[in-house]
Amino acid sequence: MAELHVQIVTPAGIVYDHRASMVIVKAIDGQLGIMPEHTPIIVPLTINGVRIKRVTNDAEDLIAVNGGIMEVRNNVCSIIADSAERSRDIDVERAFAAKHRAEESLRKAEAVHNNKQQKRAEISLRKAINRISVSKHNRS
C-alpha cells in the first residue's frame, strides 16, 4: 500500500515527520485531501488545522498551522509554515490569553478606524482561535 511522507517545518525546525494515508489542509481556494500518488501540487495554506491520518496506528493527528505553503511530489507532502503546533503541545491558557488580547486590539483598532492595526488584530485572533480549536482534538 502506498503512503505519504508528511513533514511540517517552521523556522524553529521540524514540527511533524510521519507516514500517512491522507492529509487534509485548507488552502486559500478551499479544502484539499491529499492521498498517496497525488499529482504534484504547490498551494498556499490558510490559518487552519492540518489533519493527518497516520499509517502506523490508524490515528489522526491535528496540527495548528498558521498559513504557509504545501508541496506534494513523489508521495512526499511538505508544509512550510511560519509557525505550527501539534495539538498536544498547545498551551490552552496562553492561547485564550492571546485570543483576549487580539479581541481587545481589534476593538481599539476599529474604534480609531486604523485598518492596518485592524488587519493585524484579525490575523492574531484567527491564529489564537485556530490553536484553541486544534487543542480540543487532543483532549477528546
Results as ranks from 00 to 15, higher is better:
Glu103Arg: 02
Arg73Gln: 13
Ala64Ile: 00
Arg88Thr: 13
Glu103Ser: 03
Leu62Pro: 06
Ser83Thr: 14
Ile79Phe: 11
Ala97Glu: 12
Gly68Cys: 08
Arg54Met: 09
Val65Gly: 00
Ile63Glu: 00
Ser87Asp: 15
Glu85Gly: 02
Ala97Arg: 06
Cys77His: 02
Phe96Cys: 04
Cys77Ile: 04
Asp91Gln: 09
Ile63Gly: 00
Glu60Gln: 09
Glu60Pro: 05
Arg88Tyr: 09
Val92Arg: 15
Ala102Thr: 04
Met70Ala: 14
Ala81Pro: 06
Gly67Asp: 00
Glu93Leu: 10
Glu60Ala: 08
Ala98Asp: 10
Ala59Tyr: 06
Val76Gly: 01
Phe96Gln: 13
Gly67Lys: 00
Glu60Leu: 05
Glu103Ile: 00
Arg101Tyr: 01
Ser87Pro: 12
Glu103Gly: 01
Arg88Pro: 05
Ala102Met: 03
Glu60Cys: 04
Arg54Tyr: 04
Val92Lys: 15
Phe96Trp: 09
Phe96Asn: 15
Ile69Pro: 04
Asp82Gly: 15
Arg101Ile: 03
Arg88Asp: 15
Leu62Val: 15
Asn66Ile: 02
Phe96Ile: 12
Ile80Ser: 13
Val55Glu: 12
Phe96Met: 10
His100Met: 04
Ala97Tyr: 03
Ala84Pro: 05
Ile79Trp: 12
Asp61Ile: 01
Phe96Tyr: 15
Asp61Tyr: 04
Val92Ala: 14
Glu85His: 12
Ser87Arg: 07
Ser87Gly: 14
Arg54Ser: 09
Ala84Gly: 10
Gly67Ala: 00
Arg101Thr: 02
Ile63Asp: 00
Gly68Leu: 03
